[in-house]
Design a binder for these strands. Structure first.
Length: 465
RNA sequence: GUCCCUAUCGUCUAGAGGCCUAGGACACAACCCUUUCACGGUUGGUACCGGGGUUCGAAUCCCCGUGGGGACGCCA
């Protein structure tokens, strides 16, 4: 049984990089009929917040990434960690270290100054025949892992291929702080073991942690899962994602008018490919997903392509669903919906013209809010030669039956013919008068959305209503 | 500084030694469609980081540079 996990630390929102990690981990489990576990790594008590936990949960739900177990909170597993640490202390794979943090800083600084890799000097590491210093009074020790001194830790990375790191490069890392709270690398190892994780799919900022975790797992006599390290996502500007460079919550994409299926499709395609396929459903993604086609190098986020995908999914989306998504947006704009036109009908006509929901809201609002036609646009299109035709149109509007686009189109054409005008001559002033905009869908369809009365009402500024 | 990872159009990518005169998508440009703007259609330009090998043959394998990224915490 394949079991994967997504293990964020609740120190901030779920950003796009984390979302992709979750997505790939989820997809791997789902593709193989395995299980996906959500684990909250909250051992950094100072920075973890319940708001962040909620933000992660919200993000996962919005994306539709369901998990079979969890959320499992590490802070609730303290007893287990402490028991393991005790065992390691007893078996000699861990030891107490009394070096003060300030002293550590001094040593590291000196090492750096010499061009060395900063590392713990192993003062308190027990060795046969070595006499340890006397523990100073009143100092609460940390617990360190007794990392092997030589040899290499190697694994066949699922996305990057074989990676080998010398044990000589590794430190005797702290596995429990002075306050007894265990640290990341240790908890991950214990959890992955306890939770029977078979495949660890995570960001490649963890490549350097992998040998440490493997060593701990080995010391524990635990099986070693397979590891796959995903490259990171760079911002739109090619810079590392940060607050300054587009690191925003996935929920921000919701607010910005993106559909989850568009974000999902975009993320799936960022750093993973299935031939030339660009647009695919989550079902297809689950079916196709594999680790062999993941790009090992970093990928730059491209908002324009996301927009393109979102426009596609907007066009595909059900009108009723879009109307429901739009209603609160319109309310936020201070727009009160009317009986006519129905939001669904407007959406049906406009959804293929925009790439985001906020743009759709902006287009749609003119159907419900009073209009003040732009004088410049009016001057441009409400030309003297168009006026008679417009008047004609207004006068005959009550004859139109049924009140639908084809009949309206017939009347428009009639008026054009009678006054020997071309379509734009009449369509443009109608657009501006009815919607305040110069760009709209086909004018007959737009007119059909309104009632006859509203049309006449809106034609009044032209003096023909 | 040390260690690790990485490198195909502006961007995301296809590419597992001959199918590559390097394909697709976004973006861009032109044209077509047209009732404005979109959509759609057609066409076009733009890329294998550099240098050495290996091989009959290299975008693909190896080495060295260079660029980019990551890590070096009582953060995760």
């Amino acid at each position: 049984m394949i079991r994967t996990r997504f293990a964020p630390s609740p120190t901030g929102f779920l950003h796009i990089g984390g979302a992709r990690t979750a997505l790939f981990s989820w997809a791997y489990a789902r593709h193989h009929g395995g299980e996906f576990i959500l684990r909250i790594e909250d051992t950094d008590v100072a920075r973890s917040t319940s708001e962040a936990v909620q933000a992660i949960l919200d993000g996962m739900r919005w994306l539709g990434l369901d998990y079979d177990e969890g959320p499992i909170y590490q802070m609730r597993r303290m007893d287990r960690y402490k028991a393991v640490i005790r065992e390691m202390l007893e078996s000699g794979s861990a030891y107490y270290c009394y070096t003060a943090p300030e002293e550590l800083d001094r040593v590291r600084e000196a090492q750096r100054a010499q061009g060395l890799k900063p590392r713990y000097d192993r003062t308190w590491r027990p060795e046969t025949g070595k006499t340890l210093p006397k523990p100073p009074d009143g100092v609460r020790p940390v617990v360190r892992f007794r990392n092997p001194l030589d040899g290499v830790v190697a694994w066949d990375d699922l996305v990057k291929g074989s990676i080998a790191i010398d044990n000589a490069e590794l430190d005797d890392l702290v596995i429990a702080r002075a306050d007894l709270v265990p640290t990341y690398n240790f908890c991950v190892a214990v959890d992955d073991w306890d939770m029977n994780i078979t495949h660890v799919i995570r960001g490649d900022d963890h490549v350097n942690n992998t040998p440490r975790q493997i060593n701990i797992l080995k010391a524990l006599g635990a099986p070693i899962p397979r590891y796959g390290h995903l490259s990171m996502i760079l911002g739109d500007d090619g810079q590392k994602l940060s607050k300054r460079h587009g690191a925003v919550s996935v929920m921000q994409y919701d607010e910005n008018g993106y559909l989850p299926e568009a974000v999902l499709n975009y993320l799936a395609r960022l750093g993973w490919s299935h031939g030339d396929d660009e647009i695919f459903s989550m079902e297809q993604f689950r079916e196709w997903f594999d680790l062999d086609h993941i790009t090992p190098s970093a990928a730059q986020f491209n908002t324009e392509k996301l927009d393109w995908l979102n426009a596609h999914y907007l066009r595909e989306a059900d009108n009723m669903r879009l109307a429901a998504l739009l209603a609160p947006r319109l309310a936020a704009l201070g727009v009160t919906l009317l009986q006519t036109p129905s939001l669904e009908a407007v959406v049906a006509l406009y959804k293929e013209r925009v790439s985001r929901l906020d743009q759709l809201a902006d287009e749609v609002k003119v159907f419900y809010a009073p209009l003040e036609p732009d004088p410049d646009a009016l001057a441009r299109h409400l030309t003297p030669d168009a006026l008679p035709a417009l008047k004609d149109f207004a006068a005959r509007i009550l004859e139109v039956d049924p009140w639908d686009a084809p009949s309206i189109n017939a009347l428009v054409k009639d008026c054009l013919k009678a006054h020997k005008l071309k379509m734009p001559k009449l369509a443009m002033p109608l657009r501006v008068l009815l919607t305040g905009r110069e760009h709209t869908p086909s004018i007959d369809g737009v007119i059909a959305l309104f009632s006859r009365e509203t049309v006449l009402e809106r034609l009044k500024p032209a003096g023909v209503g």
